[in-house]
Design a binder for these strands. Structure first.
Length: 456
RNA sequence: GUGGAUGUAGCUCAGCAGGUUAGAGCAUCAGAUUGUGGUUCUGAGGGUCGUGGGUUCGAGUCCCAUCUUCCACCCCA
């Protein structure tokens, strides 16, 4: 039998105990803050019906959905003509009924519609689960990664947008990542497109100007022409592209430019309100109005949110926005939602690169009890369970190995304290309690050890 | 999906124009040191050179294919 070299699919990863500890630090931070803001957790299946996902993420998105082949004699359901014609697109729809979820927003919309009678609106839910995309892997881009979503559905209030920004601010504040929050509004983008006379080309316009700081003004203008805009239209767009100044200055200028566009004006009002709320309760991080931000346009209708780390080049580490009618496609029209999603894996990469993980997240056991032999082990066991009863994570070295080896074990596992129990300690009840960081060792009885450890 | 780089020990990399048994550092394990780790010294284990073909008397080295990882585009967390 040929030996198979073990491997895992492209773009997926194993996680070691240390990596899990660091990842949990991120998840716990986000989960606690979501909870603090009154969001409730839900979970949905890893796989959805393919029809639930198709057409929700645009053409590009459809291509990146991982499909699950039907079990059994799946070919019997395939159309022979399509099969012979080599039409993968059609055949895959015939032989795949299920697919791995591509994000958490669409499954959430499905969940809301399906459970609408059990839900009290507005509904604040959070969801921390993996998603899968058949994208080509790159730095900060994986085929399996975790999203941490929070959405408020069933409320039009811009107070929600404000709260989501506050959550972003708090999460990155606690993780000590320096960030910039960029806000934009789809309605403003629509107003701009309308103003230059190409309302139908909003996607082309925004994806082009999204590249402004990447490829520069000239190239953007070239691309706009390539995408079918007239020279006049590109000319009219210039003042908008070069908009400078404070948020209120930008909004005032836009208000003047877009005065003929009711949609644009509404977008400006919305941004105005969010920024006013933020003034009443300032964020620690920098929140700016960025008209070149054009993410997730396939379903966002109002606010668009994106977060970038300041000190490291990485794609966006958090994104979100408002979608007015996401549940409409599942038969529940007129319900507005707004949400954000933290990209845990990218946040991990940023923190790893900047060395931001606190050392103590790597501590599992707090105490190691050294094992000297049968008699000593019996005594140590009693101490071990007393410590555990007191809520202290600890372990007893399972065999009477050389002391050096046991100390090394403690050292390598970042166990901060060691208790040594030999003949002397058994006689007096005074345990040798060693602090591995300082190297200081002193004699203490079990109770004293417990109260000491519970204090720190 | 398009274009480009990469792949030698667990990790980071050497390996000269193709030529005997493929090297180093770190890590691992053992010993120096039978009640004290993070320093030092000694020794050991570990590689079908990503995989499969081809050229050649001979391939880690050259050619082709394939996979992985990385980079740009696209898109995104």
């Amino acid at each position: 039998m040929a030996k198979e070299k073990p491997s895992i699919p492209k773009g997926t990863r194993d996680f070691s105990p240390e990596e899990i500890a660091k990842r949990n630090y991120i998840f716990d931070t986000i989960r606690n803050i979501y909870s603090l803001y009154g969001f409730k957790p839900i979970e949905t299946p890893a796989m959805e019906n393919l029809s639930t996902l198709m057409g929700k993420y645009g053409e590009e998105g459809d291509r990146l959905i991982f499909r699950i082949l039907n079990s059994g004699d799946f070919l019997s359901k395939a159309n022979i003509k399509d099969l012979n014609a080599g039409d993968s697109q059609k055949v895959s729809a015939q032989i795949c009924e299920k697919a791995l979820r591509y994000d958490l927003t669409v499954p959430f919309a499905r969940y809301v519609v399906q459970h609408q009678n059990e839900i009290t609106f507005p509904f604040r839910r959070y969801q921390i689960q993996p998603v899968w995309r058949a994208d080509r892997p790159q730095r900060g881009r994986y085929r399996e990664f975790f999203q941490c979503d929070a959405d408020v559905i069933g409320s039009d209030s811009l107070f929600n947008e404000f709260e989501l920004v506050k959550i972003i601010d708090k999460v990155f504040g606690e993780l000590e990542i320096q960030i910039t929050v960029k806000l934009n509004n789809r309605k403003i983008l629509a107003g701009i497109a309308e103003y230059i006379g190409f309302a139908d080309k909003i996607i082309d316009i925004t994806t082009a100007i999204d590249k402004l700081d990447k490829i520069g003004l000239e190239k953007v203008n070239e691309e706009l022409m390539d995408r079918g805009l007239t020279a006049d239209a590109v000319e009219a767009l210039q003042p908008v592209l070069m908009l400078q100044g404070s948020v209120s200055e930008k909004l005032a200028s836009l208000r003047n430019t877009l005065q003929t566009s009711p949609t644009g004006l509404q977008g400006i009002d919305e941004m105005d309100e969010v920024f006013t709320l933020l003034e009443s309760s300032p964020a620690y991080c920098h929140v700016e109005l960025d008209l070149t931000l054009a993410r997730g346009l396939n379903y966002y209708t109002g606010a668009i949110i994106e977060v970038k780390a300041k000190d490291v080049a990485m794609g966006s580490i958090c994104g979100g926005g408002r979608y007015d009618d996401l549940t409409g496609i599942f038969g529940l029209p007129g319900v507005s939602g707004v949400g954000i999603s933290f990209g845990a894996d990218r946040i991990y990469d940023v923190m790893q690169e900047l060395g931001l993980f606190p050392n103590d997240v790597l501590t599992f056991s707090k105490v190691l009890l050294v094992n000297f032999g049968t008699e000593e082990q019996k005594y140590a066991q009693k101490v071990l369970f007393k410590l555990r009863d007191a809520g202290i994570s600890c372990e007893l070295y399972p065999e009477a190995a050389k002391m050096k080896k046991q100390m090394q074990y403690a050292d390598k596992n970042q166990i901060p304290f060691v208790i040594i129990i030999g003949k002397n300690e058994m006689e007096t009840g005074q345990l040798a309690f060693k602090n591995m960081k300082t190297g200081v060792q002193e004699l203490m009885d079990t109770e004293a050890v417990i109260s000491y450890l519970n204090k720190i």
